[in-house]
Design a protein around this nucleic acid. Structure first.
Ligand SMILES: NC(=O)c1ccc[n+]([C@@H]2O[C@H](COP(=O)([O-])OP(=O)(O)OC[C@H]3O[C@@H](n4cnc5c(N)ncnc54)[C@H](O)[C@@H]3O)[C@@H](O)[C@H]2O)c1
Ligand SMILES: NC(=O)c1ccc[n+]([C@@H]2O[C@H](COP(=O)([O-])OP(=O)(O)OC[C@H]3O[C@@H](n4cnc5c(N)ncnc54)[C@H](O)[C@@H]3O)[C@@H](O)[C@H]2O)c1
Lengths: 210, 210
DNA sequence: GAACCAATGTGAATAAGGGCACAACGTTGG
DNA sequence: CCAACGTTGTGCCCTTATTCACATTGGTTC
């Protein structure tokens, strides 16, 4: 079933399942049913079974899913049984905060390059030992350090230009924190993180729901 | 049409449209067609027209939408023609970064309270002038300062407990940065921001797409 | 003021996604 | 070894979302 078209929503949920399963693992839960897992993830049990069924049969009928096993299966599905090298572009507030954050490494995402235009920042050493490069050296450094994913944390105005440079350097995956819709060729996959949209959504619910 | 059930996806898109329209406004674009706006937002033109049609008729046939006007209409729809008071809980890496960030105020979201448990942080004055309160005072301060939305930026382990306190204090909207699924009553609306899910999604695409 | 133009608003068609309900099938207990 | 149990995997249906296509209508031109 590996070649059916998988809904994007399924991929997102798999990530959530994995996170929850990893927690369960730490609590020494060995086996879990779709029903209990569903409750903990806030979804429908059939949804979980169907999501997993796209990729194979991982459960045991009458019993449930072996937690440790399922974590590994999902990792395999998502391409997480390896590490990914990231490049951060823009070391302001949020860029530095992300690099300082330890959670990414724990999940196999490793910052191996960092760029900025600010002369004050270029050459500085970051807490993780990385030295900041000038954005002019982006293509060269990215190829050299085998970076797979670019993270954009520059002001909105610079985002498109940075994206162009990343693509020129052969990057096919971008995580974009700038609040603009960046345009990329089909070969490149962009995910946007925009807190303001989430806040707007809350505001809408508060205004109408009451 | 104000009372039809509106898809959540529509609300999210409205927020994107608004952001784009505000940019256009700064470039002195007065009128725009659904087709041009669609291209800039990366969606289908009919989608835009239908999204807007849920709430009224804002365009002019044969011409398009008046940009400044439409921004105001969308603000009205989303409940953004007013300000919202936010409380930040957890002033670590990301919490401080968010408070320092000016973009929220620009969109009408104002931090009016901040909480932490760390004695080193309680009592400190933040760049925006706010003094950090201890989380034990949460309910009292939140009611006093008329906070509408709570932002959780604590470690994952504390998130559920913080959410409970927020709800007890009468909060009905939560923006959650901790990578856990928090459980809340129906009256409360939660939006999660989880970068790792987005990264996992990129990893999946890079692994399979090639 | 009539005829043309251009882009909206919308009903109908299509596509996608989610959930129910049950048959299939390991497991466990007798 | 067989029967009773419990949970998976999945066909089918229903609901929701997106796209198409065109009639509608305000603006513009002559
Ligand atoms: N900080 C937040 O909490 C937050 C929240 C939501 C959205 N964002 C978005 O994230 C982005 C960054 O926000 P921030 O608060 O970190 O901003 P910031 O101003 O603190 O940092 C931006 C950094 O990008 C660098 N930069 C500018 N142009 C560049 C270029 N062409 N190439 C490389 N680096 C460049 C600057 O030198 C600076 O170091 C913005 O688009 C912002 O809207 C931030
Ligand atoms: N920083 C990032 O880039 C980033 C990225 C993704 C996710 N996150 C998530 O955001 C959350 C915060 O991350 P961080 O890097 O800012 O962590 P951090 O450790 O820097 O900050 C956490 C803060 O929360 C405070 N805190 C702990 N328990 C509390 C409680 N019960 N009530 C109030 N405050 C409490 C701590 O004193 C500390 O100041 C974490 O859940 C993390 O997984 C952060």
């Amino acid at each position: 079933m590996k070649f059916a078209k998988i809904p994007m929503a399924t991929i997102n949920r798999l990530s959530v399942y994995m996170r929850t399963l990893q927690e369960l693992l730490e609590e020494d839960v060995e086996v879990i049913s779709s029903e209990r897992l569903a409750k903990q993830c806030g979804v429908n049990p059939a949804q979980i079974r169907k999501d997993l069924a796209y990729f194979g049969e991982f459960g045991v009928r009458g019993v449930g899913y072996h937690v440790a096993d399922l974590v590994n299966q999902i990792k395999e599905i998502l391409g997480l049984s390896r590490t990914w090298n990231l490049a951060m572009v823009g070391l302001g507030n949020i860029g530095s905060s992300l690099i300082r954050h330890g959670n990414f490494v724990k999940h196999g995402y490793i910052f191996t390059a960092a760029f900025d235009v600010d002369p004050q920042k270029v050459g500085k050493k970051l807490p993780n030992g990385l030295v900041v490069n000038h954005v002019d050296e982006l293509e060269e450094v990215i190829r050299e350090r085998d970076v797979h994913i670019g993270v954009i944390a520059t002001p909105a105005g610079a985002a498109q230009s940075v994206a162009n440079q990343l693509i020129l350097a052969g990057i096919n995956g971008i995580l974009n924190f700038a609040p603009v819709q960046i345009q990329v060729p089909d070969c490149c996959h962009v995910e946007n993180v925009d807190f303001t949209i989430k806040l707007d959504c809350i505001a809408y619910h508060l205004s109408t729901g009451v």
